[in-house]
Amino acid sequence: MRILVTRLATSIVLLFVVSALTFLLMSLLPTDAARVILGTTATQEQYEALREQLGLNQPLIVQYGNYLARVFSGDFGTSIFTGEPVIRSIANRLPVTLSLLIPGIIVCAVAGMTFGYLSALSRGGLRRVLDVLVLVGGAVPGFWLALVMVSVFAVSLRWFPATGYVPFATSPGGWATALVLPVAALAIQGAAGVAKITRDGVLEAMDQDYVRTLRAAGIPRRTIYLRHILKNTGMQVATVVGLIFVGSLAGSVFLEQVFVLPGLGALAYSATNQNDLPVIQGVALTMTLIVIVVNICVDLSYLALNPKARTR
């Protein structure tokens, strides 16, 4: 249980650190919100007046305090560029990103573990083929893989749409077909990582004394592999899956560009190009929250898989 308490404590600190960090970074920008809003043609007086109005002439720490106070009341500010409340753009775009991330991580975990197990239990030629697949799958950059898939499956074969997003509510079928390529592109690299850790974990477990005990007691192979070894390698796999999920946040930024998906990553990208401070801060906090939720899930899986973690 201590593991969860520690996790919650670090999570709170983490939220503060990330908010402070983004705030600090943004305050270092050569330009500020007032300048962005007014453009270059405004007079110095207009600029000063707007700074006053936006609270930009107060000390940084005060500005940060004000910002935190607003965030706590659910107000992430409004986009400098579009004037839309940040919380609303995030709410609009979060489902898109989650539609990419969650199926992506599920495919990644299932496919990765299957490949890992197959590789550990096979030998000779099959094993080498699997290992090469894992190696190549883990090495090709996701955005490039996405382009190749577009060129093959969307442009040449026309099986799936090349770009775009259909909300689930509009058409579940359209939603699914639109996501096949992005999810695949996102999952492949991670699946390679999961396969590798699974394979190593299974091979290592097979050499453990306890497996010998189980074998010697006449317990069937199937039970040993699918129950004992699976559970014992579970923690390593869960750790890696968690890390891959965090990493796939980065992947989603690139992929949302390739597939023109209106998700958080795309939002962050356009906000970066426009120096849209409140939006970047909002996205950073949202992504941090996602990371925190993932980490808590990983910790919960430790509790489920490892009896020692429970008693600690």
Binding site: T10, S11, V13, L14, V17, V18, L21, T22, L25, M26, L28, L29, L243, V246, L249, A250, V253, G265, A268, Y269, T272, N273, N275, I280, V283, A284, M287, T288, I290, V291, I292, N295
Partner: peptide, 21 residues
């Protein structure tokens, strides 16, 4: 603790921010 933070920061956002900064 610092490591814990580093491993949980959505690094891509920070990197994007630095790019623009």
């Amino acid at each position: 603790f610092v490591v814990e933070i580093l491993m949980s920061v959505p690094s891509i956002i920070i990197v994007l921010a630095v790019v623009s900064l």
